[in-house]
Nucleic acid binder design. Structure first.
Lengths: 223, 223
DNA sequence: GCAAAAGTGTTTTCAATACACCCATGG
DNA sequence: CCATGGGTGTATTGAAAACACTTTTGC
């Protein structure tokens, strides 16, 4: 590393905000840092990008290896290139949003014993290293701007969800209450979701009908 | 460059699609390539990113140095990291959209004698090198999705534009005709544009009123 | 039978659309 | 005076928003 071209060799990392919905709360998957700097702080999952892979491949592999997750929805979000964003080195970050349904998040996931991970509610984020809080917040804002378009949240609800659950997810991300009747009317009349004929069991009150997302429905503006 | 970390040193380039509106046509500024490979083909302006600058700084400098343009609207668009996108080397591209008004584009621009540039209508793009056509097309699609939100096109019209000119720009980018009365109604009733009290001169027919964009108007969905 | 949560229809309001005639200028 | 392009108002339609009572279950 001593040619005049050195200054053109950049280090890139991918950083992913993986969201799921659990117990009615939108949560994000974070990793606890085990070494200095920022030991004990939390970071977004990610990886250094090598010359032999695309950014997407890098992320898919990183998520599989570090988190034991496969088959999630990924969406490129933003690039962070401030020279001082990492105090030790110039690292350019490429941020992505990932969405997984809660069945995959909880039952199909193979946890790695050497990595401490945890899901956090997006209104209760722990202390985060580097500029990762800023990146996460921007990703949440991006998610918010995306869900007004139909079908984006379907990655969080693969099958057999109830309308109150779906409405709850939209309300949390949009940060406001929605009318139950209008919400139902919109999703059903646009053919976005399909009645399974079943109802859920347990819990208080009247059982809710179960739905799944109509894969054929085309994208359109919702809110 | 022979440590085991070599594979983590990536080369990055910025690539910008700079749009303006001229004679009622949306045009993009391209550079003609003077050397092999792809000699004689056209490329998007851009630059290799060094370790000591942000991507934004890099682009601002590249546009100033190569094109003699300053003060344009810039918006990050997408990252291209296919391993084979440049046959000679692995280069990751970060694409941006740039918007300049036609006064700046034509009168405030200092052309560089050693660089051959030209504005092309977006429905008449010449043969382009590498994957630049794909990148440009994606940027055009991105622009199309952006202008449905107010105020994005104001960078193309700094002052003293006519409503037919503005409508024409929207029609070209959206690819469809719009109703004159409804178009006018929307922009004026939302307070997005302000009447200067003047009218333009020359040309056939009744002179059109001149407007400027209201800087205080807040963003909202238009189409 | 009552508490808890889900399901359902109608009215009102506002924004989007469709539509046709008059006006100012240049030649 | 006529050709050209710009400016203007109204009626209709459709989607969004507001709103309250009934139904099903567990205890």
């Amino acid at each position: 590393m001593d040619s005049g071209l050195d200054k053109y060799y950049n280090i890139l990392e991918s950083l992913v905000s993986i969201f799921t919905i659990d117990q009615g709360f939108i949560k994000v998957l974070l990793i606890r840092k085990k070494s200095e700097p920022y030991k004990g702080y939390w970071i977004l999952p990610g990886n250094i990008i090598s010359k032999e892979e695309t950014v997407e491949d890098n992320i898919v592999n990183a998520i599989d290896e570090k988190l034991g997750l496969r088959d999630l929805y990924l969406k490129q979000c933003h690039i962070y290139s401030d020279v001082g964003r990492d105090p030790d080195d110039r690292i350019i970050a490429i941020s992505y949003i990932g969405l997984v349904d809660n069945v995959t998040a909880w039952y199909k996931r193979e946890e790695r014993s050497d990595i401490e991970t945890s899901w956090f509610r997006i209104d209760d984020i722990p202390k985060m290293a580097y500029d990762h809080l800023e990146i996460l917040n921007r990703n949440i804002a991006f998610l918010r701007s995306k869900i007004v378009n139909s079908n984006v949240l379907k990655s969080l609800f693969p099958s057999d969800f109830t309308l109150p659950e779906l409405q709850n997810a939209y309300e949390q991300i949009l940060g406001k209450k929605l009318d139950r009747r209008n919400f139902r009317k919109k999703f059903i009349s646009l053919g976005l979701i399909v009645d399974t004929g079943d109802t859920n069991v347990g819990g208080n009150g009247r059982p809710a009908k179960l739905y799944y997302f109509n894969e054929e429905a085309k994208e359109r503006t919702l809110f």
